[in-house]
Design a protein around this nucleic acid. Structure first.
Lengths: 241, 241
DNA sequence: CACCCGAGATGATCTGGATCAAAGCAGGTA
DNA sequence: TACCTGCTTTGATCCAGATCATCTCGGGTG
């Protein structure tokens, strides 16, 4: 291969060229502002499947923006049991719950090869004082996380198993769609038992439900590959529950 | 009654005299800064039991700091069923999940006569740009809310009924203690069915568990009045679950 | 290619907590 | 004072989903 000629201008503002930039920082930043943001962000080497991004208890100093891949966050109960909190997709921010105590309060593990941007939090905070709108943006993101968590609490409180699975599938569908992927056809990077754990159900129940949903013509599930065939009926399951 | 002579200096900085000031704004603000904060805060008339502070879907413009009393937050499922998200005590901030969408995403109803400080959010944001530390403080509060929500998700996922009730009682105990009240003796402002809903259980189960806990000598429960007799054993129930 | 191993599916059985049904109780009110 | 009315407790029964036990399958490995 011929040696690459590096165009300095194009090296700048990696953020601006990032496909998911509009997801993690969807604000009208001026060119100069983006450069400032760019400067504090550290790009990390790819994270292999099964590798931890951070673990509960470790010192908090940065939040992470997921660029590609997917990550599972979980809490460790005293008994050693793992409680899955959620699945993060490109554009999502990780580690926000660590701000208050100076330690990460959950653990994040890659479900597949993933890449992240590390954002040193103190520097980000300083930048928030300079760049108009950035402060608001971060608060919005945190607000949305709170909102999503509330919905999770509601789902796992009272909904029957069927509705819980339908609900998580529809949520994922939405999130993929929002990222420009198909809303009806996608690959699950998480295992059945991660899904079960996240929903407070047994793996066997999830397995049976997938079979059941297939029989009903609601979807096809070949290993990790999911096709949603009847989104309308799936939402009805969630709503009438 | 004799007409009251108003001392102007004492009217200023109500925040500083507020008993829970250190809970909602536990930062070293200078006298002038507190005055600024004071100026944007609107004191509301007391909210009667059963009255809504805000409802899901209403326009978001302010967050609220609970000064006294207690408030229940909940989501309305499409089916009309109510999902209790949490109980707020003096010093807690309400409405944070509304920041992102410009609408409140949950509803807040007073469980007893309560009072709140209304904080117009846009003004608060502006102040965050002026007062060093305020921005960080708000982010810390939001971070803590995320963290608490994660714990709620974990609790209602897998823990058996016993552990869930023990867990909420211990959490309340902690929170009362943190506010300077007894950790072992307190009044529940919420009904049994609110507790049940919040924990994803049936009222009958809660009722039976209280009886069971009393028989075991873990606590006494006379109507709303609770005395925790054996906190150590209660935590064991949570941990060994 | 044969082997292995962990994820997933399926079947049989068990059980924690829901649901249904009633009765007890406290606080408000006429 | 007696009577509601809504909360709480208690008891009897039922069932959704857990648990236990196999079995299958696909993907990696020597």
């Amino acid at each position: 291969m011929a040696s690459t000629v590096i165009d300095l201008a194009s090296v700048r503002s990696i953020c601006q060229q990032c496909g998911i930039y509009n997801l993690c920082m969807p604000i009208g930043l001026e060119r100069g502002d983006i450069d400032q943001l760019d400067e504090i962000i550290k790009r990390r080497r790819p994270i292999a499947k099964g590798e931890h991004l951070y673990r509960a208890g470790e010192d908090f100093s940065s939040i992470y923006a997921l660029r590609s891949g997917s990550v599972k966050t979980y809490l460790n109960h005293v008994s050693g049991v793992e409680h899955v909190i959620g699945f993060k997709l490109p554009g999502d921010l990780l580690g926000l719950s660590g701000i208050s105590g100076s330690h990460y309060t959950n653990s994040a593990i890659a479900l597949e090869t993933s890449s992240v941007c590390e954002i040193p939090f103190t520097q980000l905070e300083d930048l928030c004082q300079e760049i108009h709108g950035l402060q608001h943006h971060i608060m919005e993101i945190m607000s949305r996380e709170i909102q999503e968590d509330h919905e999770k609490i509601a789902v796992c409180h009272k909904l029957p198993a069927e509705a819980r699975l339908a609900s998580i599938l529809l949520t994922l569908s939405d999130r993929f769609h929002h990222r420009g992927y198909s809303a009806t056809e996608f690959n699950l990077s998480m295992s059945r038992s991660d899904i079960a754990n996240m929903l407070g159900l047994a793996v066997e129940t999830i397995s049976r439900l997938f079979t059941h949903f297939e029989e009903e013509g609601l979807l096809t599930a070949d290993r990790k590959h999911i096709k949603l065939l009847d989104i309308k009926r799936l939402s009805e399951i969630v709503q009438t529950a």
